[in-house]
Amino acid sequence: MISHVLERTAGVPETGALAKVLKLRARLMDLTQASHDAALLPRVPGGLSLPERAVLAARMARICGDAALAAHYTELAGNAGDLLAVAEPGVGSEERRLAALLAYTDKVTLRPKDAVPEDIEMLRDAGLAEGDIVRLAGLVAFVNYQLRVANVLRAMGKSA
């Protein structure tokens, strides 16, 4: 049984050529899962709550058109209440802090090349502590990694 989020949502078969090449990188897939847990389900979430992390991840998955990872992250968000609305790309917020989280997440997912120092200043002005800026950046960066590996694993599975 595949317990890792990435292989499960990418629909990797348990046997066959793709399963075999993943086996050589089993330690890296374990560390990918550990990185998922550190980004989405950390023991010490700091100022970035677990539901906030999950809805931002779901939003990134939807931006990338990944229905399976979007469903996974939405499930993680659970009963996030009003926050669930922003799991949908394009939905904004009147609340300054959440609006800043969304602006950073969208820009760094869609157009990381356009990042400027003012993006970090915006987060600080919206009340994020230094550690929380790093936690947010780490979440956005990890989810974008996971979405790309999932994209290829699906394509490889189909053309096995």
């Binding site: 990188r25 890296l28 950073y104 760094v108 990381p112 090349k113 990042a115 993006d119 970090i120 950046a137 780490g138 956005v140 960066a141 990890f142 974008n144 990694y145 996971q146 790309r148 590996v149 290829v152 694993l153």
Partner: peptide, 16 residues
């Protein structure tokens, strides 16, 4: 894939 995606991650940290 892993190396390229890893840098999708690293770039999003270093460049921001």
């Amino acid at each position: 894939t892993l190396a390229t995606a890893l840098f999708g991650w690293a770039n999003r940290l270093m460049h921001t």
